[in-house]
């Protein structure tokens, strides 16, 4: 009897249609919720990329008097790319950036490593010295730039202490300007290396170190064979971090020398800044930016592939 009553009734209708199915399906719903943010990100990242690509094949600058989307009027094929391939100023800037990276980063690294080693064990005043050591990196880079600008004046404290005459100039000398900038960078960022490397060192199990000592390993041998190998990841992190940041170095240089004398301390960031805001060569800068992006992406991809191979 009950069976019959059931078969006689019409089936209750489920809401039909796409949105109804969305309401039921968690995955579909997720997609729609994410969509607005995703579109926003797309807009922020992808749109400027295409804009840059577009501009890089023209000669457009804001001084042309036409809006940017009309840049096709000054279409220039690959002229910008050809120019950047042979622009001595650009390559000089890249070379100088590399120079700073090659000198400053290892210097900071070794200094930081040495300092970290000193801080492994407790000693009276350790906390105080630790805080003092960290201060340089907490100062705004622009202020650091200002500090060293003052220090390296011909009439400033550096020359006074080294007993050099007031016309022995640092910031305006073609060779020494770079030295002063590198010194400033090392001063500011060694503490970061110190911090990271110390953390790495403290992560080495102390009983293994003790075992090594008992086996007759000298402090140096233990450092090289036990501590360093265990710090590999931390070391890589520290080096990569600082190298990437060094590539972007700007504030220090702009304040200390504005890239001068001439272009002697002009790194890629300073060069691009001057080209963009001083010369207003926006299409040229677009081409440069795009090229750097592609080159770095290729390098990064290769690096990741290499690391993946080593893992597996």
């Amino acid at each position: 009897m009950t069976d019959q009553a059931h078969t006689g009734e019409a089936r209750t209708t489920r809401p039909q249609g796409y949105w109804a199915s969305v309401a039921r399906d968690g995955q579909k719903m997720g997609f729609w919720f994410i969509l607005p943010t995703f579109l926003l990100l797309l807009f922020i990242v992808v749109f400027p990329f295409f804009m840059q690509l577009y501009l890089s094949v023209t000669w457009w600058t804001p001084l042309e008097g036409i809006p940017w989307y009309s840049a096709w009027e000054v279409f220039s094929w690959f002229d910008n790319y050809l120019t950047l391939a042979t622009d001595p100023r650009l390559w000089g800037a890249l070379w100088r950036t590399a120079l700073i990276m090659i000198v400053a980063v290892p210097a900071q690294f070794f200094l930081g490593m040495a300092l970290a080693y000193l801080f492994i064990d407790q000693f009276p005043g350790r906390k105080l010295f630790y805080s003092i050591l960290l201060t340089p990196m907490m100062i705004v880079p622009a202020v650091v730039g200002l500090m060293f600008f003052l220090l390296f004046q011909g009439t400033g404290p550096v020359n006074a202490h080294l007993g050099l005459p007031a016309d022995f100039s640092w910031l305006t000398d073609v060779n020494r300007a770079m030295i002063s900038v590198i010194v400033a960078d090392i001063w500011q960022w060694t503490p970061l290396m110190f911090l990271i490397l110390l953390a790495g060192m403290l992560g080495v199990p102390s009983d293994q170190l003790l075992a090594a000592r008992l086996l007759g390993g000298s402090n140096w041998q233990n450092f090289v064979k036990i501590i360093l190998p265990r710090m590999k990841t931390v070391i890589i992190i520290a080096l990569v971090l600082r190298t990437v940041e060094c590539f972007k170095i700007f504030d220090l240089i702009y304040i200390m020398t504005k890239g001068g004398p001439g272009v002697q301390t002009e790194t890629i960031s300073v060069f691009l800044y001057k080209q963009t805001f001083g010369d207003l060569e926006w299409s040229y800068v677009a081409a440069i930016g795009l090229t750097i992006l592609i080159v770095l992406s290729v390098i990064a991809a290769k690096g990741l592939a290499y690391m993946a191979r080593k893992q597996g």
Partner: peptide, 27 residues
């Protein structure tokens, strides 16, 4: 030159067995 075996062994976990054994001789 005192041999010491720790309660938790303190093996050099980042080295191979060979290198663990050879450490004392290497140094």
């Amino acid at each position: 030159n005192i041999g010491f075996v720790f309660q938790n062994y303190a093996i050099f976990t980042h080295l191979s067995v060979y290198r663990n054994l050879s450490y004392g001789l290497e140094v």
